[in-house]
Amino acid sequence: MSETQKARMLEGLAPRPLMPGNPYLPMPARVREIITETATIKTLRVVLEGEGAMERFHFEPGQVAQLSVFGVGEATFVINSPPSQKDYLQFSIMEVGEVTHALHNLSVGEQIGVRAPLGNFFPYEELRGKNIFFIGGGIGMAPVRTIMLHVLEQAKDYGSISLLYGARTPKDMSYQYELDDWLNHRDLHCTLCVDKAPEDWPHREGMIPNVLKELAPSPDNSVAVLCGPPIMIKFTVEALLGLGFAAHDILTTLERRMKCGIGICGRCNVGSRYVCTDGPVFRCDDIQAYL
């Protein structure tokens, strides 16, 4: 048995909020608000049904949910509102397949199903005192948003906090209504970039890994937290390693096709780890071989 294996067996799974009851049975929830972010991304704000359901629901930043449209199916999304938001749960959904198409067609007031919270979360306690460099690519900004807002709520406990948020074009950027807040936030160094910039674009132009190299954040006492499409993760991790970040200090969330969400159905595993229970948040040294 290797040392990492031993360490892992001792460490076990981090305690986390779990679903009660039959884990396959969704909780009823209702769509409260729909925000059109881009041509392909909508943000749904949903409220769990039932007396006190929202108050009883606890989760940690980074945990995910399976959203059901009954008759169509289920798909996994990160809860991208911070845990302090008790009025609703927020999900940003890019329309790509059957379920996301059905989610995009919902109207306010319609009922859906929610299985949550699933998965692990960002180890924000372990990150206290460190500089954090957040990197979000496209829809990958969703999980980053949760942990970033959570960390910003207690900014004094952390070192410098930075964000690099990139998308293909300015039109593909979600959370437009928050970008000014982020750019002007006193505790956040926010950089925006797009692959192809129009003339009036005041921010950076270029692919995330390249812009990152230009920004060249120092790896000293720093942790990088990133999420985005698989190809962006691959090259951004390479760039971070090139800047001197240790693989252990690069945290990423992985997305895989999921069905059960509870570590059984065998779809989302990365080697012996399951994205749905051991993830979605991983330290890069655990999964580098599979990126």
Binding site: Y24, S68, F70, G71, A75, V96, G97, E98, V99, T100, P229, P230, E255, R256, R257, K259, C265, G266, R267, C268, V270, Y290
Partner: peptide, 24 residues
Amino acid sequence: GVRLRSWDTCMARHFTEEASGHNP
């Protein structure tokens, strides 16, 4: 309708194929 659980095989390409077309 019903939500079904059914046998599936990890040897099939569609098993891990995501809606985006990405397939690990």
